[in-house]
Nucleic acid binder design. Sequence first.
DNA 1: CTTATTTCAGTGGCACTGAAATAG
DNA 2: CCTATTTCAGTGGCACTGAAATAA
Lengths: 140, 140
Amino acid sequence: VAPRVSYLVGRLDRLLRRRLGRALADHGLSLAEYTTLSVLSARTGLSNAQLARRSLITPQSANEVLTRLEERRLLRRVADPEHGRVRRAELTAAGRRLLAKADAAVDSVEREMLAGMTGAERKALRDALGSAVRGLVDGA
Amino acid sequence: VAPRVSYLVGRLDRLLRRRLGRALADHGLSLAEYTTLSVLSARTGLSNAQLARRSLITPQSANEVLTRLEERRLLRRVADPEHGRVRRAELTAAGRRLLAKADAAVDSVEREMLAGMTGAERKALRDALGSAVRGLVDGA
DNA sequence: CTTATTTCAGTGGCACTGAAATAG
DNA sequence: CCTATTTCAGTGGCACTGAAATAA
């Protein structure tokens, strides 16, 4: 009997959280904090609301992480001159330095996870994960 | 720039938790509780330690869920006559009835998630998720 | 003595809902 | 007025580590 895909996703996510959590703890980062730094590195200037939408979490959750990272001076938030309340986040030099170290640790786990797959299989996995998200987002 | 597979898995898992959590709340079950009932339905008589190994969580976490479900009389735990401390879990009739209703709700979300994929894509997704788990378990 | 299983107790990650203040 | 953004406050899910008792 084939287990549900949602069960398999949950199992992998738990494993990934544990492994990434350990790897990132050495750098003083939680997984959510790392993810936020990583997203901002690729898309600098995102507001809290934009970050939340992109990560599929509530603005309240996103804000908690941003606040911590700002207090640690890993990012700064500058008021958007055109929109009153909007504050756009960008990494500081310290944030970029820490992210570079954390990236190396994460890459190592990611490589281990994908070691048994061909390039085609990795692409199929990415595509299928994207498709699954779209199926749930559009429907909800 | 392609996001990491671990990021995509995390996003999908969050979405899935939210949707499944809501669907299951109508039946008074958390996702972890539902999963436990579902696994026991397929593999009756598992001990707490076996359940934990299969689900890739600690025995402490598994035991918390089993205790709650036992208190609610959705499963019972019977001492193994051959092994002193081992208690094998099995669903009660009430547990099976509740699981059947919850299964329908979960299937609906699962179908929505997989709606945009062909049969080959679904199989590729299952295979890749399994391969990713093996890569992390063997390596750790 | 060593190992596996169960279980009590405490902690941490991190998401959620609700509600309020602010700005366009 | 209505909507979007930010943020304070509280709650919930659920995993974790540590430690102890029990049994093969």
